[in-house]
Simulated assay, not measured.
Amino acid sequence: MRSVQDALYNWLSIKVVCDARPEDTAARETLDLFDGIIKDEHHLTNILVTTDEVMYYVSYTHEGESKKTRFPRELIEVMLNQINQEPDKYCNFPIES
């Protein structure tokens, strides 16, 4: 991921899916991937997500500096809405042990 903004956008989009579908193993694996990117590549810490009717707000610390960004809900929730509209296309396949 080139920019912190892009990494946070992808991370938050899949986090919203994961939060809504905790049994979705593919979403969890993808969230883990993006979690690693924002923490290991971009060195973000103290990540906090809040929301209102219109926006998601992400506050975080980067290189010792507190920062905040925001994303429109309609952008972040696109993936979740698509899954909810066509759930048959997004079956969960549990990891076999």
Rank of each mutant, 00 (worst) to 15 (best):
Q5S: 08
I95W: 02
G64M: 07
N10C: 07
V49S: 06
W11E: 05
L31F: 15
E23Q: 10
S59T: 13
S3R: 05
M1S: 15
R73N: 06
L8H: 06
A27N: 06
T69F: 01
L44N: 11
K15H: 13
N46R: 13
K39L: 08
L33P: 04
V4D: 07
E23D: 14
K67R: 14
V17F: 01
W11K: 08
S3A: 07
V16M: 10
K39P: 02
M79V: 08
D88E: 11
D40A: 15
E29G: 06
V54T: 13
N84L: 09
I37D: 09
K39C: 13
E41Q: 14
D35K: 11
P72W: 13
I83S: 00
L33Q: 09
G36W: 13
S97G: 05
C91Q: 12
Y57L: 05
T51Q: 15
T69W: 08
D52M: 04
E77W: 01
L48P: 01
L31V: 04
Y9A: 09
P94C: 10
G36Y: 13
T51H: 11
K15D: 14
W11A: 08
S66T: 09
I38C: 12
I37K: 09
L75G: 08
T30Q: 12
K89Y: 02
N10G: 03
P22E: 00
D35S: 15
S59R: 13
I83Y: 01
V54R: 12
T25K: 05
L75V: 05
T51S: 14
